Computed example of a mutant assay.
Amino acid sequence: MPVTSDITATYRGPRRVMRRLLSMGPREDRALAILMGACLIVFVAQMPRLSREAHLTGQELNMLLGGALLGWIFIAPLMLYALAGLSHLIARLIGGRGSWFGARLALFWSFLASTPVLLLHGLVAGFIGPGPGLQAVGLIWLVVFAWFWIASLLQAEEPAP
């Protein structure tokens, strides 16, 4: 299934999509591609906000973009790997029976599937700026991401039949 179809399907049933992704077997290259795709989309989503910030403050746009690129392409993946490991350890403490790969895939896929809302957040930040609209879209993203991650992690940590 194409990634865009899986993202759309995740909004209807995140556990079903995660079950299908896990059934494809543990392939770290796929998990890393999902993570890097999500980080790239988040970097692109930051561009309108950074452009607005550069215009309003007189800062150099290329410097802001370089910092965002460094953060999202090189640093964020490392932090997300650590967060996935921590979530797996916590799941183990409360009875989870999944794998390290399953926990990583659950987090990475949830992050990628929630990026359409992050793209909207970037547009609101760039064109409207700070305010209740931006906060509302940010809250919507947080709820969507949490829903996807919790549902995916529950699926990944279920005992194997």
Rank of each mutant, 00 (worst) to 15 (best):
S114C: 13
F148Y: 06
L139I: 03
A106V: 02
R30S: 08
L107W: 01
F127W: 12
I34V: 12
N62F: 10
L22V: 03
F101M: 07
D29I: 04
G102I: 04
Q135Y: 09
A125F: 11
N62C: 04
P116S: 04
I128E: 11
P132Q: 14
I34M: 03
G96E: 10
D6L: 04
F145Q: 15
A54I: 13
R52N: 15
L56D: 12
F127T: 10
L142S: 13
L120H: 03
A38M: 08
P14A: 08
G13P: 06
R12T: 07
I73M: 15
L105Q: 03
L61E: 11
H88W: 03
M24V: 00
L93I: 12
F101D: 07
L65N: 00
W72V: 03
R49W: 07
W149A: 14
G66R: 02
M47D: 01
L50W: 06
S51M: 10
L120Q: 03
P130M: 13
S5G: 06
V144S: 04
I73L: 15
G98R: 14
L119M: 15
I41Q: 09
G122H: 06
M36R: 05
L119S: 14
L89N: 04
A76K: 00
L65Q: 00
W109M: 01
L40Q: 02
M24I: 00
F101L: 13
I128H: 09
W100S: 11
G138F: 09
Y81Q: 02
R19E: 00
I41E: 11
A151R: 04
G98Q: 07
L83M: 14
A82L: 06
E60Q: 08
A125W: 06
F145S: 12
F111R: 13
M63R: 11
R49Y: 08
P116I: 05
M24W: 00
S99I: 05
I140G: 01
P77T: 08
I41V: 15
P130S: 14
L22I: 05
G138A: 14
V17F: 00
M79I: 14
A31W: 05
A151H: 03
L70Y: 04
L22T: 09
M24T: 02
